[in-house]
């Protein structure tokens, strides 16, 4: 199941002036310290199977395969745009980061991951267990 191709976005970098050596600080999408955040939602829930699987996958990739370092996980998540960063749940950000890292490290390709997702979606649509 191929995804509809997004329209090509013109890279803006080339049209921008070269970076000044001491660029003024900009706040990253993740860098929320000191901003008004409103009340904290302290409600808890039991981990869902999805959350446990993502956690396990991360541990395997980090500890056994060295695909991941905490810093590269942070880097991929910090690269999310503001809308995605705000709306994705904690483990959704992780699985996004895991996917980005597997592709970046040449372990899997986007096409392979998309094909597998399509396969599983089709199976679920037929009403069979995953």
């Amino acid at each position: 199941m191929a995804r509809p191709k997004k329209p090509a976005v013109k890279k803006r970098k080339a049209t921008q002036p070269p970076k000044r050596k001491m660029a003024p600080p900009k706040r990253g999408v993740h860098d929320l310290g000191g901003l008004p955040g409103g009340p904290i939602d302290r409600s808890q829930h039991a981990p869902t199977p999805f959350e446990e699987r993502v956690d396990a996958l991360m541990m395997v990739l980090t500890n056994q395969h060295g695909i991941y370092k905490v810093d590269s996980l942070r880097r991929t998540i910090e690269g999310l745009d503001k809308r995605a960063y705000t709306h994705m749940a904690y483990y959704e950000k992780w699985i996004y980061g895991i996917r980005a890292m597997l592709v970046e490290q040449g372990v899997l390709t986007d096409a392979e991951i998309d094909a597998k997702i399509g396969e599983i979606r089709a199976r679920l649509a037929r009403g069979q267990a995953a």
Binding site: K19, M22, A23, P24, P25, K26, D71, R74, R75, E78
Partner: peptide, 8 residues
């Protein structure tokens, strides 16, 4: 330091 940094 009061400087920007594009990456992580």
């Amino acid at each position: 330091a009061r400087r920007g940094h594009a990456g992580h």
